[in-house]
Computed example of a mutant assay.
Amino acid sequence: MKARPKKTIETVHQCCGSPLEPTVPTRRVANVCWGGVDLAELLNEIGVDANARFLWSYGLDGGEFAGTSCDWYLKDLPLERLSAGGVLIAYELNGAPLPAEHGFPARLVVPGYYGTNSVKWLWRLQLAARRADGLFTTTLYNDASDARDLAAGLPPRRPVWALAPESIIVAPAPDAAVALHEPVEIWGWAWSFRGIAGVQVSTDGGINYRHATLEPRRGWAWQPFSLQWRPSHRGVAQLCARAIEAGGAAQPVEGARNAIHTVRVMVE
């Protein structure tokens, strides 16, 4: 693999949380740089059967999870995702050899998709005309479709693939003290598969929102946002951030892994 041209991708990388609690936000997220082989170029060189629609990826970890025994960690990926670019078989993380806990010697990396799809300890790839039948493609990591999806004829279960719009407030930190009438910068990160078009910030627990300054998207990386705030009342203030992606979808208030992030601060 290292004899082939190396491609480097900077991307946000997010765990979608426990598949047993799909509506609980965990916000285990970072922005990292991967190095490896471009998967689309590799497959084009090998040649892909016209009937293939999915790529099955096998990881060298197995065992029992949620009462079911699995020989391998198996995920699938729609081949059409490759057209958006950036999918790698990675062997480097942030310029260093891939650590064992992150999938050494090689892992799949799918920018813009939740981390569960970036299979670690990769040992096999298989092209198929249908989705894989494993525990982590059928039962787990599948969300229930809402009424609009069902009315549109979509299946009752949707695979957890593309990153939903999300944002986090980095500063002020939770339970930080800020000064009355003094300027405070509220800033953080926002991301989604389709990119974020705007971020709104509330300083009153979600009653009113203001538009934050948002930097343009740069590849698959997350986008910084900021808002200047001058507290006018003493006491507890609830800061909220709501990301809106390019297609118009916004973060829900609650009941989803990408529910609105709230930070409590004290105005003194």
Rank of each mutant, 00 (worst) to 15 (best):
N94T: 04
G103C: 05
G115K: 10
N94L: 08
V119R: 01
G115L: 12
A129Y: 10
P97I: 10
W121P: 07
A128G: 12
A132Q: 11
L108R: 00
P97N: 07
L108W: 01
G112H: 07
A128W: 04
I89F: 02
E92L: 05
L125F: 10
V87E: 00
P99H: 09
L125C: 11
S118F: 04
G115V: 03
V109R: 05
H102K: 15
L98E: 05
T116P: 06
L127A: 12
R131V: 15
P99R: 10
A128P: 00
F104Q: 10
A96E: 14
P111I: 06
A90T: 00
Y113R: 04
A106F: 03
P111A: 12
Q126T: 14
Y113C: 13
A129T: 15
A132K: 08
A96D: 10
S118W: 02
L127E: 09
A129S: 15
V87F: 01
V109A: 11
V109F: 02
V109Q: 06
I89Y: 02
W121E: 06
G112Y: 05
R131A: 15
R131Y: 15
A96T: 12
L93W: 06
Y91L: 03
G115C: 09
H102Y: 11
R131P: 13
G103L: 03
N117V: 15
F104S: 15
V109C: 07
L88F: 01
Q126G: 08
R124E: 14
T116Q: 14
R130Y: 14
L98A: 09
P97R: 09
E101G: 10
T116K: 09
G112A: 11
L88H: 00
G115D: 08
A96R: 11
L127I: 06
H102Q: 13
V119E: 11
Q126W: 08
W121F: 12
P99L: 11
L98Q: 06
P97W: 03
L93H: 07
V110G: 01
L93Y: 04
A100P: 14
A128E: 15
S118R: 04
N117Q: 14
L127W: 02
E92Q: 13
L93S: 07
V110N: 02
F104M: 07
Q126E: 15
Y113N: 07
A90P: 04
W123M: 05
A106K: 04
F104W: 14
L98F: 07
H102E: 12
A132C: 14
W121L: 10
Y113L: 11
K120Y: 02
L98R: 09
V110L: 08
E92K: 05
N94C: 11
A106M: 08
I89W: 02
P105D: 12
L98S: 09
P99N: 09
A100D: 14
R124Y: 10
R124D: 09
V87H: 00
Q126Y: 08
F104C: 12
G95H: 04
L122C: 03
A129M: 14
F104Y: 14
G95V: 01
V109M: 12
N94G: 07
I89D: 02
L93D: 03
A132F: 06
G112P: 00
G112M: 09
I89A: 03
Y91H: 11
L125K: 06
R107I: 00
S118L: 10
G103P: 07
E92Y: 06
